[in-house]
């Protein structure tokens, strides 16, 4: 029933350390909006309309907390699979996505590590193809794992390269 998402075998998980990193980063990002919303709610005029602003503020805050809680589930649901000719990435809880990138289409492999990622010793690996829509990113891998994956992907890409 679940179609292509069914295949259970062989999915590699992300580093479990990524869950707190994701929770913190989404808390920071959404937190900014929450603070703005709360600040707006306190100064809204006339006061009779402020319930609407508070509703928005509570909604944003709730969303922030919810995302923080869901981070652990999200990281568990994420998986990638190195297959013979291609890389599969699955992600998402409510709306799910499955991306397949043939090694031959890879133009570059990027390893990126932001300040928050570095606190937990993590890095994200992005596969770049000629398409701007590919968006094949594996976040939250341990540093050594990310480098190993990068080297493996580059090697696979070199042997299988396809013309543009």
């Amino acid at each position: 029933m679940d179609g292509p998402f069914d295949t259970d075998a062989g999915w590699q998980p992300l580093s479990p350390r990524y869950a707190p990193a994701r929770a913190l980063s989404s808390a920071l990002l959404n937190g900014v909006f929450s603070v703005i919303a709360i600040a707006a709610a306190t100064i809204v005029q006339p006061p009779s309309m402020s319930w609407l602003a508070w509703l928005v503020a509570i909604g944003t805050l709730g969303w922030t907390v919810w995302r923080g809680i869901r981070a652990w589930r999200w990281v568990q649901a994420f998986g990638y699979q190195r297959r013979q000719d291609d890389l599969l990435i699955r992600s998402g809880l409510w709306s799910r996505a499955l991306i397949a990138v043939p090694y031959g289409r890879m133009q570059a492999v990027r390893v990126h590590s932001g300040p928050l990622d570095r606190l937990w010793g993590l890095a994200r690996v992005t596969l770049v193809t000629a398409s701007a829509e590919s968006a094949a990113t594996i976040p939250g891998l341990a540093d050594s794992e990310a480098r190993r994956l990068r080297d493996e992907l580059i090697e696979a890409g070199e042997t299988l390269a396809l013309p543009l």
Partner: peptide
């Protein structure tokens, strides 16, 4: 020959319906 990558997406509702 021109396919760079493929993506299947499934929202919450289409998952209930068994669509993608």
């Amino acid at each position: 020959v021109r396919v760079q990558s493929l993506r299947v997406s499934q929202g919450w509702f289409s998952r209930r319906l068994g669509l993608a």
